[in-house]
Design a protein around this nucleic acid. Sequence first.
DNA 1: GTCTAATTTATAATGGTTCTAAACTAATGT
DNA 2: ACATTAGTTTAGAACCATTATAAATTAGAC
Lengths: 142, 142
Amino acid sequence: MQKNSEFIDKLRTSGLRPTRQRLKICELLFNRDKTFHFTINDLARNISEKLNEKISLATIYNTVHAFKKKGYLKEITINSDKSYFDTNITNHHHFYDEDTNQLIDCNNNEIGKVKIKNNITGKKINSVEVLVRVASDIQNQN
Amino acid sequence: MQKNSEFIDKLRTSGLRPTRQRLKICELLFNRDKTFHFTINDLARNISEKLNEKISLATIYNTVHAFKKKGYLKEITINSDKSYFDTNITNHHHFYDEDTNQLIDCNNNEIGKVKIKNNITGKKINSVEVLVRVASDIQNQN
DNA sequence: GTCTAATTTATAATGGTTCTAAACTAATGT
DNA sequence: ACATTAGTTTAGAACCATTATAAATTAGAC
Ligand SMILES: [Mn+2]
Ligand SMILES: [Mn+2]
Ligand SMILES: [Zn+2]
Ligand SMILES: [Zn+2]
């Protein structure tokens, strides 16, 4: 629910030039009611479907990584061959539905606070992430 | 701390033929005091260093995946470009040291039990994994 | 030993990601 | 407005971890 001029400011204050391509990607990613998860592939498909202007794949990679670096996106890794980006940049945990390959945010009340009793000496905790893998109750015999 | 005949039994009862290659890999992975984490690359290097017999890379992949499927290994995904295998197949959590790229097991007393208050309806929880990313306390200004 | 299906192997193919270097463009200054 | 420069985009090549292929080998059964 942001508008173009806000994205321009946001990019400028991040030291990123508000190019046509970046603004388009901002609209697709952040001009929404709800946060969501996407793969680079999802985004590329989205762009070629919804936009009548082409954005090169290299630019899509560049932009997503730039946005991640600036903290506008988080990366969630499920397995080696599935990496999602998350427009929800708050600390939160995930359910991963192994039947549908869907990544679902946990509400704060769904998973209790993780208590870390002993951290590694001399190290700072950067993040604590819980991934709950779920699958259909019945046919669970692959 | 197992011996060859035990590996043969283990493989046979899993429906895997105890081939020379699989037994060598069993020795490298399971004939130890402590469990550990490794990448395919680590294992391949280990094999070519410690063994005077070559095992093809395809076989290494095949074997690791077969062992994972049978539940003798777990896969831990850190980011899209780093996947570790774990000979500790019990439920446990991890610290990941972003300075040294080391994956470290949490003892059960280091992280409290994760409380999942609401699961997704009709789904069964397959695993609950916590990953705590840590880094040096000081120079944390990339 | 013979037979058969499982396994190993070298090598090719795949595919997602990164690199390259040339073309383009946003920003700044005059 | 124009010139200059650094940042950005782009197509395509390169990269590289993983998977597929298909032929050779081997384990287990008879
Ligand atoms: Mn990345
Ligand atoms: Mn895998
Ligand atoms: Zn999320
Ligand atoms: Zn572990």
